[in-house]
Design a protein around this nucleic acid. Structure first.
Lengths: 151, 151
DNA sequence: ATGCTTATTGCAACGTGTTGCGATAGACTT
DNA sequence: AAGTCTATCGCAACACGTTGCAATAAGCAT
């Protein structure tokens, strides 16, 4: 049985977008999109490289990273930097969201658009900046850790 | 003429803090603190390494980075990650502040504690998190670029 | 099907930062 | 002043990403 890509619609959109720009559809790109979709939460660049190499051992990091850049250009993927500076990628299909890292317990929490709205408003109010939620990556202490510190 | 360190007070504080922890004061550490103080705005790790090597060509990256980590542990320095993930260091003497990067014009703007207060409040209100201002590094569009886009 | 154009790939080298380990050299004791 | 203990240093190797270049192969035209 032929391996059916789990992302028919996505793949088609991608193929169309590439054609329009005179760019090409390749097996590697299919694999990378599949892997990204499969690790739908968040994956670092290195993790994605490794997973892609399980499907196609001939793939190299440069190709994977270049494809990820391309997917971002096309608006299909996003990346942000964790508190340690490493890259984390996710598909744009996931709703736009920010990230919160607790330096106490190490927990990571997502911040959806609704929860972020007052924050973004405060940023615009204080600075005139309209901040990108997808690039919002905060570090601090979560409620539980703050309570612990007081105890 | 002996080279006089420009940071008497800082150096003394540092020496005392190290002694208390059973750690040592070395020429390299003096140089690194001096360099950090001299490039008082913000400098990437690589820039700092290069400047330190001008004063002491025998210094190696590992030493510089390890010292920077130590200075952070002691609360004397801070680093955050720019939008490209590179590290940027500054002395803690500078008042705590966040950073805003405009993806339109590339401008970088500082965010002082007063301006940030309503933002931090909004974050706590929305999430329970108490965010670290020093690690706050936002990307978005500045007021000018937003106006341009509308034009 | 064959050939042409050029986007994509793999490779190799680089840039930034981190880590393990043996050698060096601070700081303290005698 | 000499010796001891161990923090720090330099080195070499590694991890994550990026970039230039020559070889490959995708997509189109014939």
């Amino acid at each position: 049985m032929a391996k059916v890509t789990a992302n028919q619609g996505l793949t088609e959109r991608l193929q169309a977008a590439l054609k329009e720009r005179g760019q090409r559809w390749t097996d590697q790109r299919q694999i990378i999109v599949d892997v990204l979709a499969a690790s739908d939460g968040h994956a670092t660049g290195a993790e994605l490289v490794e997973r892609v190499r399980q499907d196609d051992p001939s793939a190299t990091p440069s190709t994977v990273y270049r494809t990820l850049d391309l997917l971002e250009e096309l608006g299909l993927a996003r990346h942000h930097h964790g508190p340690d500076g490493r890259e984390t990628y996710h598909l744009e299909e996931t709703t736009e969201h920010g990230h919160l890292h607790c330096r106490g317990c190490g927990a990571e929490q997502e911040l959806d658009a609704a929860a972020a709205a007052p924050i973004l408003r405060a940023i615009t109010g204080a600075t005139g900046f309209s901040a990108d939620l997808d690039h919002l990556s905060l570090q601090g202490l979560c409620a539980a850790c703050r309570a612990d510190q007081k105890g």
